[in-house]
Design a protein around this nucleic acid. Structure first.
Length: 488
RNA sequence: GGAGAGGUGGCAGAGUGGUCGAAUGCGCCGCACUCGAAAUGCGGUUUACCGGCAACGGUAACGUGGGUUCGAAUCCCACCCUCUCCGCCA
């Protein structure tokens, strides 16, 4: 969420940032709306101040047993009548401004390259001794047989696409035996590395969350279609709302009771009740969302909080299921285990001071890279261009793993610095040590790594001519003695 | 699911219609005393927004939303959450 004050004071910079995202200028409209709000608000507050003052006077008369003068009563009466109008106007305009602001993406950081899509992303050379000359990492294995895609090898090893589809539809998979074990091993391994070596605190958060958590991490309102939502029982809630409405209708229109009688009112209410219970399938107040990533649960764990500076940086990790409806991805990656409605991911989240977020971002990417290096999986690192960056990000690095079966690099991790964009939505601040001032935190999130895609990478990179897969050394402690997963 | 109790500042906790943004204690900050510290004393210490160059002035917030009233932390209604007991349950 953007700060309207920032927009006010940096009108041109704001529009320039939007332009880099391929969006039309909006600052002028937003600022006009904002000054209208402030004008209305000031007028309303002056009225309220007047009302408070007069009420005090009124009370003084009453306490002395005197009747307040008629002109005092009259002015109070007119204030009481007129103030709500101003209030409603302020509310209406504020809602308009909020609705406009909440669907504007974050501004890209200065060092993010301009571009329109993934073809404009920029390779960031890996800086380490064992990096390759072309900036990538890892030795691509030379096969003495044509390497196959995981979708061809894995079904014989326990990756059961058919059963998954039968149970839940397309993009669901049922893992068995060695595949299930290897998948679990990967998750455990990632969690152990991130907690043990990179200082992330292990968490086990809810995977069903309410609107606030989704909104705070910028998944709502714009991207409601990307996630699955559930509805907990809303029948009681709806019933109570219907009862309440009936009461208020009768109260405001006493004639109704006279015409219909209590029995008649009850019958009419029950007809409405029946119809509403049948019609209403999505009561927003009672829904929960299946998290599309545990970035949501972990980041929103600090929503609404005023943190101590000493608590920062806060580094959190969790291995959770993630759920994505993959709306708009029809036809993409339909084969295999790459794009699923349900997948596991080891997520990294950092809550930091603004001045630390840049460095923390680099640190986070290194933590993600370390998993690939320990598994000896070749990869490369990209800096996303403006056109490929997510809504909330001001800067994003992607890691892409080499898949020999597909002969391509595929995304396996995405690490984003959102700056204070999410913190504003969540209202998460910290108190600057020794000062009265509070400031919004910066939040960062990254995959460390996506478990399902890592499984795919292991299968393709560690495949043997006979269709078996050798377990990477790093995972052996997690495999209960299983060293090679063989077709059955 | 049933019965009961409760939700007030960083924490604890008072407050049942106006003088309450809110006693008191703890914590924290400053000052005094001290060689220094502890103890003690004095002062300060919520947040957001609006106006203002500023000093400062104003508005709002006592779980959330509505209502009653000239005026609500306080009264009424609904909802949410927490705790205790019972029931059920991985």
């Amino acid at each position: 969420m953007h700060d309207i004050r920032f927009i006010r004071e940096n009108r041109d910079a704001f529009d320039a940032g939007l332009a880099r995202r391929g969006l039309p200028p909006q600052a002028d409209d937003l600022i006009a709306l904002d000054s209208a709000i402030r004008r209305e608000k000031t007028a309303m507050q002056e009225g309220l101040a007047r009302k408070n003052e007069l009420s005090k006077e009124f009370g003084n008369f009453k306490r002395q047993g005197l009747t307040p003068p008629a002109d005092l009563q009259a002015e109070l009466e007119s204030l009481k009548h007129n103030l709500p109008q101003g209030e409603r106007e302020v509310e209406k305009l504020s809602a308009e401004l909020k609705a406009a602001l909440e669907i504007i993406p974050n501004l890209p950081a200065a060092d993010v390259p301009d571009g329109s899509g993934e073809e404009d992303n920029v390779l960031v050379p890996i800086k380490s001794e064992d990096a390759n000359e072309d900036g990538t990492w890892g030795q691509k294995r030379t096969f003495d047989f044509p390497p196959r895609e995981h979708a061809d090898i894995a079904p014989a090893l326990g990756m059961d696409f058919e059963t998954g589809t039968r149970l839940s539809g397309a993009r669901f998979t049922f893992l068995r035996g060695g595949m299930a074990r290897l998948h679990r091993a990967l998750g455990q391994f990632m969690l152990d590395v991130q907690t043990g070596e990179h200082g992330y605190a292990e968490c086990n958060p809810p995977v069903l969350v309410g609107d606030d958590a989704m909104y705070g991490t910028d998944k709502l309102p714009k991207f409601a279609g990307d996630s699955f939502q559930t509805n907990i029982s809303y029948v009681n809630w709806l019933n109570s709302m219907i009862d309440r409405m009936t009461d208020e209708v009768v109260e405001e229109n006493p004639k109704v009771l006279g015409e219909l009688g209590e029995e008649g009112v009850k019958r009419a209410t029950d007809r409405v009740r029946e119809k509403w219970l049948a019609d209403f399938a999505k009561p927003e107040l009672t829904r929960r969302w299946l998290i599309p990533t545990s970035e949501v649960s972990l980041t929103a764990s600090v929503m609404g909080e005023l943190l101590d500076e000493a608590a920062l940086p806060m580094r959190l990790t969790a291995l959770t299921l993630c759920f994505r409806s993959e709306a708009g991805a029809a036809g993409r990656d339909t084969r295999g285990f790459i794009r699923q409605h349900q997948f596991e991911k080891c997520e990294l989240v950092s809550i930091v001071r603004p001045e630390d977020s840049e460095k923390e971002h680099d640190r986070m990417v290194l933590a993600a890279q370390s998993i690939l290096e320990k598994l000896n999986l070749p990869y490369r690192k990209l800096l996303l261009c403006t056109g490929d960056m997510g809504f909330g990000a001001r800067k994003t690095y992607d890691l892409e793993v080499w898949l020999p079966g597909q002969g391509a690099y595929r995304e396996i991790s995405s690490c984003s610095n959102t700056g204070d964009f999410q913190a504003r939505r969540m209202n998460t601040r910290y108190r600057v040590a020794g000062e009265k001032r509070t400031e919004f935190v910066h939040t960062l999130n990254g995959s460390g790594l996506a478990v399902g895609r890592t499984l795919v990478a292991v299968i393709e990179n560690y495949q043997n001519a006979d269709g078996s897969v050798t377990v990477p050394d790093a995972l052996l402690p997690y495999m209960g003695g299983l060293e090679i997963i063989r077709p059955n």
